[in-house]
Amino acid sequence: MPYTPAELEEKLRTGLDATHVKIEDLSDGCGAKFSCLTVSSQFEGKALLQRHRLVNGILAEELKTIHAFSQKTLTPQQWESLKQESS
């Protein structure tokens, strides 16, 4: 059963109080290859490895079948400065 970006986004939004989530399906629809941006205040004060582990924890069940998953994890503050840089 392939996953859709929308259902993964919803899980992260509720599971991590994420203020912004963007998941892209890079698999042409087979549902096994995603890239993921999560913005959450729960990442504050946490090292990158711990942040990624939080996301992996929320999506533990899904990641058993998703074989390629790349992610970015930002605090709201980092996300704001990134948006300003790129605008």
């Binding site: 990158l48 490895l49 990624h52 790349s70 970015k72």
Partner: peptide, 10 residues
């Protein structure tokens, strides 16, 4: 354990 690909890139 140091990390996977994303963490190494970062």
């Amino acid at each position: 354990f140091l990390g996977g690909c994303d963490i190494m890139i970062e």
